[in-house]
Write a protein that binds this DNA or RNA. Structure first.
Lengths: 143, 143
DNA sequence: CAGATCTGTAACCGAAACAGTTTCAAAGTA
DNA sequence: TACTTTGAAACTGTTTCGGTTACAGATCTG
């Protein structure tokens, strides 16, 4: 299981995309996510490093989205906030004196790489704009 | 990041496939994995439930592989030992009074499902036999 | 049957990862 | 100047996981 950072990051960016008029404070965003503003600022820091948002201090400050949602791929968001390595190897190295132990991690590395690439590629096929469309479709449904 | 269970389970099964003559004790397997025999027995319990190995108590006991490695797909092993849900949602539910918070998890669910399916499908394309081949290819290389 | 071996399972421990929290310096506004 | 907000460091509490101990039950051997 990954951290919840990817889910929260998409949430944060979706909120920014829905309210592009003015900068959003971390406090406001935290109210939607139901978490502490510092948690939001930590994620915004990663998204800022990735060039997706920009921030301003002080009154009337906050953060704004600086990418077109329709061209912001979920794979980019994933990579911006999640650590590399989705599937975990052995916690401790296996026995190097065993023919299997000595080589199993090398054999698994290729498998893991392909599997993770497949997941990323799936996220590559969707954009923040798609998420916004899903939100709106959902909003249109009867309660 | 997932647990290391998938990596260790493949290790355990590869060892069984390489030594099909006699049952392997959890102590012996633990020596290759470099862990405690109980950790191995826990995983063997899951693999037994999944119909991949069988076990016998007592002297001359241990576990044997009861599936053809060439037809044992890595996706089966993954599902046998890892919990569902690779990508995590928010740890706490978002604010239901916010239009985004109320619906973001529904919108993300479809995304997560597709991404995880893509990963599983990648594992579906490889078998324990492929891992054995990789181990042998590696063994043939000069040190 | 007695004794040894091995599995299966429950219970507990320690380490690591994370989200949440507090605090404060620095940037920016009015 | 007084106020707001970000950015970042530091610490806490919770959860997850692998490692460990302990022991009942099954199985083989003499």
């Amino acid at each position: 299981m990954t951290s919840s950072r990817f889910a929260v990051a998409v949430h944060i960016l979706a909120l920014h995309a829905m309210l592009p008029e003015e900068p959003l404070t971390s406090e406001f965003v935290a109210g939607s996510v139901c978490t502490n503003p510092v948690v939001v600022r930590r994620l915004l820091g990663l998204l800022r490093k990735a060039g997706m948002v920009e921030a301003r201090s002080g009154p009337r400050g906050g953060s704004r989205l600086i990418r077109d949602p329709k061209e912001l791929r979920l794979s980019e968001i994933y990579r911006a906030v999640e650590d590399e390595g989705l599937l975990a190897m052995h916690r401790h190295d296996p026995n190097p004196a065993c023919p299997v132990g000595a080589r199993i991690q090398g054999a698994l590395a290729a498998v893991f790489e392909d599997a993770e690439a497949a997941l990323i590629q799936s996220l590559e096929g969707r954009t923040l704009g798609d998420v916004l469309s899903a939100l709106e479709a959902c909003a249109a449904e009867p309660a």
